[in-house]
Design a protein around this nucleic acid. Sequence first.
DNA 1: CAGGTCGGTTTGTTTTTCCAACTCGCCGGG
DNA 2: CCCGGCGAGTTGGAAAAACAAACCGACCTG
Lengths: 150, 150
Amino acid sequence: MAQTETTKPNPTVPGRPCPAAGALRLVGEKWSLLIVRELLLGVRRFDAIARNTGAPRDRLAARLRALEEAGVVERRAYSERPPRHEYHLTDAGRDLAPVVTALAHWGSTWLYDEPPVVFHHRDHVAALDTTPTCTACGSPADHLTPHPHS
Amino acid sequence: MAQTETTKPNPTVPGRPCPAAGALRLVGEKWSLLIVRELLLGVRRFDAIARNTGAPRDRLAARLRALEEAGVVERRAYSERPPRHEYHLTDAGRDLAPVVTALAHWGSTWLYDEPPVVFHHRDHVAALDTTPTCTACGSPADHLTPHPHS
DNA sequence: CAGGTCGGTTTGTTTTTCCAACTCGCCGGG
DNA sequence: CCCGGCGAGTTGGAAAAACAAACCGACCTG
């Protein structure tokens, strides 16, 4: 659900109208997707996120605020006095998992002498397939089409 | 195939060892993924890419060179005198399609009052599913696992 | 009370980014 | 021949962002 269920801002971007450009305005800044990665992995504390991403602390603070404002991250107080917070993903944030996974898959395929990202499903370990599929016929939909709106 | 088939550089990243971080070093810079989007759509000329992405011309030139060096983009001369080039994706570059598609899907779902990115397959128009799947059992693999190497 | 943790903010410096203007080589009129 | 225009960049300078390191306040722990 869109946060607060008001109509969405429908941000305009320069160049080709395309939702990928809008998405990149939010999560395309440096460190943002690594922060989301940590949150997807269940890391919730400022210091831990800073360590695990390598982001400078001031950038991390700024990104977390921006992501919170965008409705991707939720900040929960786990202690008054001293004020302490932990960070959680919203539904929108969790929906970024395919983006992070696709990046990881591409990276392990093309950048590293390693097997592609593995997926530990119940009792087996296997590679992933990040190809998007058509919801109508289930076949791979791996070529881009220009955005059809307006 | 990895360009020149030498062993890959295996770049190290600060923080958690994760191929997503390596991928973001290359394509996480501003404009890079929008450039890849244009190339996926078949746009090959400098000026057209600049218009369609909104990127400043000097940044576009820098990103194209970086992507070329990384083996994501190939620059082909289509005219000597004056030297003119057009840009194509390598196999590695085309493999970024799932990343761009996942971003577009997320953007249209959470940022716009629009139906999610559509896919024009042969004779039907339908939404996409960007959830990665397990190659072994075919089930959705939408939770992240820490990278198991080293 | 000394030292340590957590979640930041501040400070000063280095890098990037941006934009507009300019270049270079050529082509097509007039 | 001269003029303008196009494609594909490059250059210069100013503004914005990122960086690293130090600092801070409110606790806890020994």
